[in-house]
Amino acid sequence: MKAYLDIETSSDGRITVVGMYRPSKDLKQLVLPNITSQEILDFLNDAEAIVTYNGDRFDLPVIYKHLGLDLMGCFKSLDLMYDCWEHNLYGGLKKVEKKLGIHRDLPDMNGYDAVKLWSKYETRSDRKALEVLLKYNEEDVLNLCILEELLKAKKVED
């Protein structure tokens, strides 16, 4: 069983949201200050692999740096960015999603917007900003499943 993971960070590099999805456990989002190694490991327990987009270079090293949790050492990592490159699909997750027709409710939002939303939440206790940030993270995480399926289908076509 695979687990899908995406993080959001603040302007100073702190992890603000960890979104994780497993079909058998549904979606779980941890929000600062409630992000702990134990919470992540409890959710990922017995997963065969962690699926990310650019996670080998960003999400997983940031988790290691801030929490001391070596997910690449504990689990097989499947970074879909490299699979995309094999099919000449370059750019960030949102750009690839557009090319493949993957739907988003928040199509114009990006990582910088996520940082600004966190700042609004943290400095002004803006609950709406947090809700939008969590929706953005949810789409990042759940769209990894769709992207993975489309890439599998492309391999069959090739």
Rank of each mutant, 00 (worst) to 15 (best):
E149M: 09
R22S: 13
V132K: 03
H87F: 09
E8A: 08
K2S: 11
Y82L: 02
A47W: 02
V17M: 00
V141K: 02
L78K: 08
T9D: 01
V17Q: 05
L150M: 15
H66D: 12
Y112I: 14
R104L: 05
P33M: 04
E97V: 08
N45S: 14
D56R: 10
G111D: 04
K98M: 10
M1D: 11
E122D: 08
D113P: 00
K128P: 00
E148C: 04
K155A: 12
G13L: 06
T36P: 10
D46W: 02
E148Y: 12
F58W: 01
D42N: 14
S11F: 12
V141H: 02
C74M: 15
D79N: 13
R22A: 11
E138T: 09
E122G: 01
L44N: 05
I102T: 07
D126F: 10
T52M: 04
D12G: 04
V18M: 01
L130C: 11
K95S: 13
G73D: 13
L134D: 04
E86H: 10
L44G: 07
Y90W: 11
P107V: 07
A129G: 06
G19A: 08
L151I: 13
A3R: 03
S119I: 05
L147G: 06
S125T: 07
Y4V: 03
I146R: 13
S119E: 14
N110W: 09
V62K: 08
E131F: 03
K28Y: 05
L71N: 02
D12M: 02
A153W: 02
S125D: 10
N34F: 01
W118V: 06
L150G: 01
E86N: 15
K154A: 13
E149F: 01
L78V: 14
P61L: 03
D70H: 12
S125F: 10
T123Q: 13
K128A: 12
I35M: 09
L133T: 03
P23R: 13
G55R: 02
K94I: 07
M81H: 14
L93R: 00
H87A: 15
E139G: 07
L134W: 03
A3I: 04
K65I: 06
Y136C: 05
D42C: 04
V31Y: 03
I63M: 05
G91V: 10
F58I: 01
V132T: 15
I35P: 05
E157K: 13
I35S: 07
